[in-house]
Structures are given as structure tokens and as C-alpha cells.
Design a protein around this nucleic acid. Structure first.
Lengths: 121, 121
DNA sequence: TCAATGTTTCAATGATCGTTGAATTATGAA
DNA sequence: TTCATAATTCAACGATCATTGAAACATTGA
């Protein structure tokens, strides 16, 4: 992830509705959610949702596929992981204190069981 | 870190000059840098720098202290660490794939020597 | 006190962002 | 074809953001 992508990602995540969308899609898993379903959960109009989805897509944080009349959106796990890596390594220069604080938080080197299917991308 | 703080932090980091300031201050260490010195490195005017510093301060990502005529700014390591934790745990729901991707990246469970003095806050 | 230095504040401007509702496109069913 | 559904695009608007230069403030030394 280069700086340009990181800036776009931070910008995308700096708005409440969009942060909510990402959180919802991460939980939704690889199947994702239809736009209408997301709009309903977020409590925003379809056109407003479209606007925010486009921002997230532009930042590479989500991807989409059409399925009949619906368009399903999924979180881009890889992009989220890269953003976190950017924050730790590039932005924070892999600073020991910061790095430690992330790793100490449970799960390090003793990965939890991966849920049901592990086809997360 | 709550959502409000996270949003403010993402907003603060979504601008090139401000991201540059944070990176510079992280490298600068606990002594920090005087505003004038930061402005020079970033290639921006004093008043423009003040504007960006205020944004970063408002997000809690930096702190300041006066020393004679100069005001020294330092990165808030704790806030940066909390932001990363928020991204991993709250935003990404501690998703195994994302978590693994951060941890695999060298340094996990084999912490590097901490530099000179370890008084980072 | 006065002047010099380091920095912030303020007002003004143009640019970008977020929201709204109407119009449009794409798909599937009758 | 016609209609209904799902979603996007577009134009308009107000709000917020980034930049600039002038003015103000705080600190220090002469």
C-alpha cells in the first residue's frame, strides 16, 4: 500500500456512515450484503448509500458483484490488512511501543480457530 | 478509543501534510520538533502548519510543550497505538485473516531491542 | 522599553464533501 | 412489451476543509 492509497483509505473511513458500512461488511463475511440491505441497516437513502459505497470502492476497501437485481458488497479484507500494516510499519515506522501494543492484544501467535469456511480474501 | 475519536483520527490522517507530520514526529521521538522545524521539512507556511497541527491535536494524535520561544510537538504514541487497535478489533472485528496479516509481519513475539531510552509515551 | 523571533489567530477565498430528490439504468417477471 | 424492483447518476445546495497573507500574541535579548 502506497501513501496515496492510505490517504484515500483514511479519508474513506473518516465518515460515520462509511465506517459503519465497513464494520457491517466485515461481520457479514465473504457473502457480503446487498446495497438495499446495507442502506436499511445504516438508515440512509439509496442514493446516499451509493455515494458512500463509491467512496469506499474508490479507496479499494470494498468490492462488489451483481446477483440478479441486487448488487452485493463485500469488505476487502486484504486492503484492510494492508492499511493496518501501513499504519504500523510506514506511518509509525514500526515503532516498538506501538507495535507491542497491537500484538499484546490477545491472539498473537496463538491464532483463533478460523470460522466456518476460510475463503476470506 | 471510541468511534468519535477514531473518526477524528482518520480524518486527521487523510491529508498528505498531516500524515507527513505524524510520520516525521514518530521518527523524531519523544523530544519532538519545533513548529518552525516541522514547517520547514514539510515545505508549508507557518500559518498553514498551525492549521494542520491544530487538527492533529484535536484528534489527540500529537501533544505540545513550550520551550522558550519554540513550541515542540511530539507524536502521541499511545493514541496511534489505540487507533491501530481500534482498526484491528473494533472496525475489523478482530478478523483472523486481518489479524494474522498484521502479526506475521516480522517482530511478532520476538520484539526488537528497544532503542536508546524507552521513555516513549 | 524596544525590537526580533517563533508561533498562532483571523478573515477571505476557492475547493471538496455530504445530503437530497428526481431522473436514469439494469434486471427479472407477468 | 410493460411493469416492478434494485441500484446508480445527476444537479443543486449548504457545510466543511485547505490555503493565503495580514495581524496579533508570547518570549527573549539588547
Amino acid at each position: 500500500m502506497n501513501e496515496r492509497q492510505a490517504l484515500a483509505s483514511f479519508s474513506a473511513l473518516s465518515q460515520a456512515t462509511r465506517l459503519g458500512i465497513v464494520r457491517t461488511l466485515v461481520v457479514a463475511g465473504p457473502e457480503g450484503l446487498a446495497a438495499g440491505s446495507i442502506a436499511e441497516r445504516m438508515g440512509v437513502s439509496p442514493s446516499n448509500l451509493s455515494f458512500h459505497l463509491k467512496e469506499l470502492d474508490h479507496a479499494g476497501l470494498i468490492s462488489q458483484r451483481r446477483e440478479s437485481r441486487s448488487i452485493f458488497y463485500t469488505a476487502s479484507y486484504g486492503a484492510l490488512a494492508e492499511l493496518i500494516k501501513f499504519l504500523v510499519e510506514d506511518c509509525c515506522s514500526g515503532h516498538p511501543v506501538i507495535r507491542a501494543s497491537v500484538e499484546q492484544s490477545d491472539g498473537c501467535c496463538a491464532p483463533q480457530e478460523v470460522l466456518g469456511d476460510a475463503t476470506f480474501a
